[in-house]
């Protein structure tokens, strides 16, 4: 395989784990994320560990113009891909009506708009004669409506449904789509604290990112549609499907309510409640 695997959100905790796992399998990498300095560090480290070719180009995926220049760069370099891993995605904590509208739009732009475009374009740059593997990082949140993470969870639901449909469409063209739906992962300080705060439940529902990356790639190579890391998470997912969506939403909402203080908002209704 002369071609590359394209990884978005490559310098985050999960992105790094994917990059390392791909390199350990001898695949060349094309990495993108926001910071050039972070891309340089990762790309250098991976070359030193595995001796594969790594290239990178920084890109703000929320910016359509920046995406355009990214693909111009890829065209210039004459690259072709046998894999795409859509890791880039984000969330801003807080209740819908307490958030800035710009932040909500950014979630949609990165999680949905950029992922769809990157996938569409990457498919134009397929390495001839190779199976093309698409991995899209969704979330366990994709399976439930999630109060307090409403826009985020729904965007992940979009990725799940879209991927499964795309998978069907690509069936006969030697390409596969696999969706990763993880629960919490210890990829940054906030996540680590959130997992620690869940105590025992956090411990048993959390897998190391290195393991998640490896098993996701195994799932993709085996052509599996969805991979949920962790047996406890898999069981919860199955159990929850026996209950009506409204009830699941209620349970999740109550759990978040306990952990999420109100911060005030433009409407002024709950704000007073939070102050008392």
């Amino acid at each position: 395989m002369q071609g590359y695997v394209l990884i978005t959100g490559a310098t985050g905790g999960l992105g790094r784990a994917f990059a390392i796992e791909c390199a350990s399998r001898g695949w060349n990498l094309f990495l993108t994320d926001l910071s050039e300095q972070a891309l340089l560090a990762l790309s250098t480290g991976i070359q030193r560990m595995y001796g594969v070719t790594t290239r990178y180009c920084p890109c703000d995926l929320t910016d359509a113009e920046a995406r355009k220049s990214l693909w111009q760069r890829i065209t210039q370099l004459g690259l072709s891909f046998h894999g795409l891993i859509n890791v880039a995605g984000l969330d801003h904590e807080g209740r819908f009506f307490e958030r800035r509208i710009d932040d909500l739009q950014t979630i949609l732009r990165v999680n949905i708009e950029a992922t769809v475009e990157m996938t569409w374009r990457a498919l134009q740059f397929r390495e001839p004669g190779e199976t093309f593997r698409i991995i899209t990082v969704s979330s366990l949140a994709a399976f439930y409506p999630m109060p307090v993470k409403a826009v985020y969870a729904a965007s992940k639901r979009f990725l799940l449904d879209w991927s499964l449909a795309l998978r069907h469409e690509l069936r006969d063209s030697d390409a596969s789509v696999t969706v990763l739906c993880p629960a919490g992962m210890r990829t940054n300080k906030a996540c680590i604290q959130a997992i620690a705060a869940q105590g025992f439940m956090g411990q048993i529902t959390t897998l190391d990112v290195g393991v998640i990356a490896a098993r996701t790639l195994d799932s993709a190579l085996a052509g599996r549609a969805v991979y949920i890391p962790g047996i406890v998470n898999q069981i919860m997912r199955v159990l929850s499907s026996f209950f009506p969506t409204a009830l699941v939403t209620e349970v999740i909402g109550n759990r978040w309510d306990k952990n999420t203080p109100y911060h005030g908002h433009t409407g002024g209704v709950r704000w007073t409640a939070a102050k008392s």
């Binding site: 790309s43 250098t44 070359q47 030193r48």
Partner: peptide, 28 residues
């Protein structure tokens, strides 16, 4: 030495950073 991109006895490591578009280094 390989992971730090340097060779002892060959001067400071700062001169041996990877290049921007990531030309392949030898590995193995």
């Amino acid at each position: 030495e390989r992971l730090c991109g340097m060779t002892w006895g060959a001067g400071s490591a700062c001169c041996q950073q990877g290049d921007p578009m990531g030309s392949p280094l030898r590995g193995g």
